[in-house]
Structures are given as C-alpha cells and as structure tokens.
Computed example of a mutant assay.
Amino acid sequence: MPQPLSPDVDSWTLQEGISMTVLQNPLRTRVIITGQGKKFYVPPHWHAAHDENHVVIKGRVIVTQDGVRRVVGPEDGVCLTRRGVVHSLESFPGEELILEETASEPEDGSLLDSSRSFRISYLMFSRMLSSPLGVMQVFYYGDSYPKLPTEFRWLKRGLIVVVGGWIAPFFGYQLPDKRLRLDPSRFPRDKKD
C-alpha cells in the first residue's frame, strides 16, 4: 500500500517493489523497480503543456508512443516524448529497472518541477487502486489526459474538466496540497490562492 503523501517527502513507495525519489541537480525523478511484486505500468496518456524525457539507468522498459512499442535500455540515451503524443511505460515482470524522468515545456525548454509532476504521478498510482474519480481528478490537476477511443482531444479535455474538476470534488475528492496543481494553462505559476 502506498505511503501517505506529504509535501516534504522526496522519496516514497508506490507499491511493493516500486519506489520514486525526487533528485536534484538537475531536477528529475527516479523510479526504482526491484522486480518483486507487480510490474510497473503507466497507462496510455498524453500531456498538453509539456514534453517528457526518460532515461533508463539500469534494465529496460517498454515505451509505447502513438502505438509504436519499443524496448529502451541504458544504451539508448534519452527517450523523448513530445507533448500531445500518447504514451505508456511498462516494466518487464521480474526484472530490475531504474528509470529517470524530467519534464519540460517545449516553448522555453525550462524544466517543470519534477517534484510536483511526480507527486501527481504518485497520486494517480495510489488512486488508481481505489477510485476512477480520484484518477480523473489527478488528470485534471496534472496536465495529463487519458487515451480514449475518440480522436477529439477537446472531448477528452472536457471529460477531464467535468469529471475531475467538478464531479470528483462533489464526492469529496480533494488534492492534499494546492502545490500539486501542475497544468500551466489551467493553473498559471504566478496565480496565488
């Protein structure tokens, strides 16, 4: 069971055999999969406002980008996923994997706060185990959109706003920390609440 989220935590366990740590200089997040327990899987999704860079430090991971699957290892260097590209990540059962991620906004190349980005991922991971409404709320706050059968992205965004932004809070779902609001188009960095 995931550890409770705290705004000051730099490392946490997602589930048996999977942990995340926020690293500095440069700001990035490291996911460590021991190969024990369930495999690591991030379902198909896309981002409207940022690119992601993945680097495999040890082991190998299956990266799927717009339906194209490939195995990525340390020798492949940076695996770039541009904003708007539907992507997913999957570890191999029983294999150790160390994966690092950074997120950047393509307009100016500046790094997003990986701490917030991965606390959002942590929330998604922990809430996926408990409630679809919780997952939709995490998508709403985190510049993430699930892959759905329709190709109309405006419909996907609308679904996230209605379910994650309105319905989930109506049923009592709340982010534990306002600093987890990541989507710059919905929650500008200079906005104070």
Rank of each mutant, 00 (worst) to 15 (best):
G84A: 10
W46V: 00
L14V: 07
G37Q: 11
S126M: 10
R116S: 05
R82E: 14
H87I: 01
G84M: 06
H45S: 09
P7N: 07
G59D: 01
I32F: 03
D108K: 11
D51T: 00
E52R: 07
V85N: 05
K38F: 00
F92I: 11
I62Y: 02
I18G: 04
T34S: 15
L112F: 13
L27F: 00
I18A: 13
R116V: 15
S6A: 10
P93V: 05
L27Q: 12
G109P: 08
P43W: 06
Q65Y: 01
R127L: 15
R116F: 01
S115W: 14
G77H: 09
L123Y: 04
T13R: 15
E107R: 15
P44L: 04
P74M: 05
V85Y: 01
L89E: 05
I33N: 07
E75T: 06
H47Q: 12
R60M: 02
M20A: 10
M20Q: 12
I120F: 01
G67D: 06
V42P: 01
L80F: 05
H45W: 06
P93M: 13
H87F: 06
E16S: 09
S104I: 11
T81L: 14
R69V: 00
D66N: 15
S126G: 06
D76Y: 13
E52F: 06
I18M: 05
E90R: 12
S104M: 08
G94Q: 10
D51E: 04
R69G: 00
W46L: 08
A48S: 10
V22W: 10
L27G: 09
N53D: 15
R30I: 00
H47R: 12
S126A: 12
A49D: 03
V42F: 09
R28G: 05
V86G: 02
H47S: 11
D108P: 00
C79M: 13
S121W: 04
W12A: 14
M124S: 10
S114F: 08
E16A: 12
E52V: 03
R70L: 11
I98W: 06
E16L: 10
G67K: 05
F125K: 00
I98Q: 14
R83L: 13
R28K: 15
M20C: 10
D8V: 02
T29S: 14
V63S: 02
Y41R: 11
L111W: 01
Q36V: 08
E75K: 15
G67Q: 06
Q65H: 02
P93K: 13
R116C: 08
I33Q: 13
D51Y: 11
V55W: 09
L123W: 02
F40V: 00
R60P: 00
P74Y: 04
R30S: 11
S117F: 11
Q15Y: 05
D76N: 15
P43T: 08
V72C: 10
H45Y: 02
D108A: 06
V85M: 06
V56S: 04
K58E: 13
E100C: 08
T21S: 14
V9W: 09
E96A: 09
D8R: 14
M20H: 09
T102E: 12
I120R: 13
T64D: 11
V42G: 03
H54Q: 07
S104F: 09
Q36D: 12
P7Q: 08
A49V: 02
E90H: 06
E75Y: 02
E105R: 15
D66V: 01
L80W: 05
V78R: 12
I33G: 05
V72N: 04
T64R: 14
E90Y: 09
I98E: 15
H47F: 04
D66P: 03
S126L: 01
I33S: 03
